[in-house]
Each structure stands twice: as structure tokens, then as C-alpha cells.
């Protein structure tokens, strides 16, 4: 079922991003700092992006539709990281 090596790497990236999301969200819950919330959301969307880009392993017919959402989430992730860096507390 998982044939392409890059699909495997994407899937592992998604799992890693999910782990980082959990850590960053726990950090936000403890500290209640806006910066941490933005970082955790960035990792959350990164995880979704990872799973989406690996999803043609499971749904090979999705094609172009997934490509658009992948690019859009990429933009959101970068935007959230930029906002986190600019946030002063």
C-alpha cells in the first residue's frame, strides 16, 4: 500500500508534527502565552499538511484537490510562525 519512499517520509513528518503540536499545546496550557498558542497551531496545521500530502497513499484519486490544500496549509503554517516571532509579551 505504501510504495513511494517520499510518502513514507511525509507520513513520518506528519506524526512528528503531531508530537510537536502536543508538546507546544501543553506548553501553552501551562504558560498561557499567545506566542505558544500560535506555535502550537502552526504545528497542528503542519501535521494536517503532512497527513494530507501522505493521504494519496490511502486515497489515490484525490489528486489536484489535495495539492491546493497542501499549498494553502503551507502558507498558514508560515504565517503562524511569523506571527509567533513578531508577538511581544
Amino acid at each position: 500500500m505504501i510504495s513511494e519512499p517520499d510518502q513514507v517520509v511525509r507520513l513520518i513528518s506528519g506524526v512528528l508534527a503531531l508530537l510537536l503540536f502536543i508538546i507546544s499545546f501543553l506548553a501553552y496550557q501551562r504558560e498561557r502565552r499567545r506566542k505558544m498558542f500560535l506555535v502550537s497551531m502552526a504545528f497542528f496545521f503542519y501535521a494536517i499538511m503532512g497527513f494530507l500530502s501522505a493521504s494519496n497513499i490511502f486515497f489515490p484519486a484525490a489528486g489536484d484537490y489535495l495539492e491546493f490544500w497542501g499549498s494553502f496549509l503551507n502558507f498558514i503554517v508560515l504565517l503562524l510562525f511569523s506571527l509567533a516571532l513578531l508577538t511581544k509579551e
Partner: peptide, 8 residues
């Protein structure tokens, strides 16, 4: 969590 926060 401290290490993660330190990073930022």
C-alpha cells in the same frame, strides 16, 4: 516543556 519554551 521548559526546553521547548526556551527555544522560543
Amino acid at each position: 516543556l521548559d526546553s521547548f519554551i526556551d527555544m522560543w
